[in-house]
Design a protein around this nucleic acid. Sequence first.
DNA 1: ACGCCTAACTAACGCCTGTTAGGTTAATAA
DNA 2: TTATTAACCTAACAGGCGTTAGTTAGGCGT
Lengths: 209, 209
Amino acid sequence: MAQNTAIKVNETSRSAVGRDGVLDIAARLFREQGYGSVSLRKIAEAAGIKAGSIYYHFGSKDEIVAAVLDAGIRVVHESMRDAVTDLRADADGETVLRAAIRAHLRALIDVSDYTSANVRIFGQVPQSVRDANLPTRRAYEAEWDSLLSQLKKDGTLKQDVDIRRLRLMLIGTLNATLDWFDPDRGSADALSRTYADVFLNGILQRQDT
Amino acid sequence: MAQNTAIKVNETSRSAVGRDGVLDIAARLFREQGYGSVSLRKIAEAAGIKAGSIYYHFGSKDEIVAAVLDAGIRVVHESMRDAVTDLRADADGETVLRAAIRAHLRALIDVSDYTSANVRIFGQVPQSVRDANLPTRRAYEAEWDSLLSQLKKDGTLKQDVDIRRLRLMLIGTLNATLDWFDPDRGSADALSRTYADVFLNGILQRQDT
DNA sequence: ACGCCTAACTAACGCCTGTTAGGTTAATAA
DNA sequence: TTATTAACCTAACAGGCGTTAGTTAGGCGT
């Protein structure tokens, strides 16, 4: 979804997929099939090159998957931050939280193979690769904690919520969507609205109305 | 956690781990390390036998993992059903839902390597193994749908909730706990209370009190 | 004492994996 | 025209995988 359209040749050879092309394909395969069943030969075949050629662009399989994981977090992080900062300055707390939820879910479902691949395979990759991805993750988590703390301070949220727990619960819920979501049965935006409704107001029928 | 204590020999030979022993160890390793990095040789070594010997008890690796997956759902299903039926007959809807949530989380965290292994590796196993596990899962899902429908009918829940979506969101949230939960930082029961509070009442500060 | 059965063992098989070294092509720069 | 270089290919490697076949050891019922 990134090449094939416009000015084909201006870099070097005629049909070079290049480092970014390999990475795009790796991310897609990881998202679709998980980590364990995607070999370098599968990636190479999907990219139209031979397995050994991948080592021109990357030093190891770990390096590929680490690059995919990092890009996945960066995309959703930017997406979420932009969604919040794009709001009018006088937007209320509820609106801010809804925007953040929607942005995360969009990145996961509609936008990025990198983000969905990250969520899907993070628990399957070697420990060293997970560790390498941690700083990027922590930065994104800090963004959420900062947002939630703000909402707590300004009185939007209940005063007894544990920020860390709430963040883990929120992101956990959003990410779990990947296990069952079917684009044919609904949109990411509609789902994000449901999520926000439940998180903000709960599912209990209320007496007072 | 099942042998090693009492009357050692009463079946056949001296140190037989047996089919159940192999299964217990497989479940534990799958929970700890995921599917891809647990080989038959690893399972065998942990069980104190040789890889080939596993084929006395199982016809294939798929058969092992399928048995683990099925047992995982059965355990959490029974756990959840029992928790609900053990309540007093006049328990209100909120109490019922809280009990179900607690039971699911307990099975996941405190009780069963089988259940946690299921959640952890389901997305990593071959399609055929996933398919074999589906009927068992559907039965558990139906139990939840039945419970939630009841709560909706009796007015405990809002009338506009989509049962299927709510169930997917709930179980997704609970299962996602496995990715980050640390028993040293809190108990499953305390966490289940937080979950129930958020799902039932939401996190928004309310004006009316 | 006998043979049976359970539960293991040994040794090997073909396959797939990540990885490496060295060779080839084609476009660009001098 | 020649040299350079980016991007790929070919062929092979050692190691791990699931799986199989044949064998062995010990407790049990008869």
